[in-house]
Amino acid sequence: MRIPILKLHDYLLISVQVDLDDQTALQFQEDVLNKIHQEGSRGVVIDLTSVDMIDSFIAKVLGDVVDMSNLMGARVVLTGIQPAVAITLIDMGIVLEEVPTALDLEQGLDRLQQELEG
């Protein structure tokens, strides 16, 4: 299973709509990085509105995607993390520090704009 990655000007837009298993998550990581390389993207928005669970593995993969993308010169914003998911992550002691977040796709794009300009 593959998660579709959309290109919008300098940005990549990804909406995760499936229950992430480990393989899909790792495949996703690779696809995002390849796409950034291919398109020379400056920013990525990953929307997690439909994701109802993030465990430590998926959190690690997401955190890694952010770090790796940064290395490749693209800023990543995570959007739409559900309250239940946020509370679970905090309970587990996973804070995803230094990862920019926004409420939804729209605000995520604004946030990217800010990050890239500022």
């Binding site: 669970m53 309250p83 239940a84 309970d91």
Partner: peptide, 16 residues
């Protein structure tokens, strides 16, 4: 919903 997420996440960790 919050506790559902907690339980699901715990199961995911244990299964992994």
């Amino acid at each position: 919903s919050v506790d559902q997420a907690r339980v699901t996440t715990a199961i995911s960790e244990l299964a992994r």
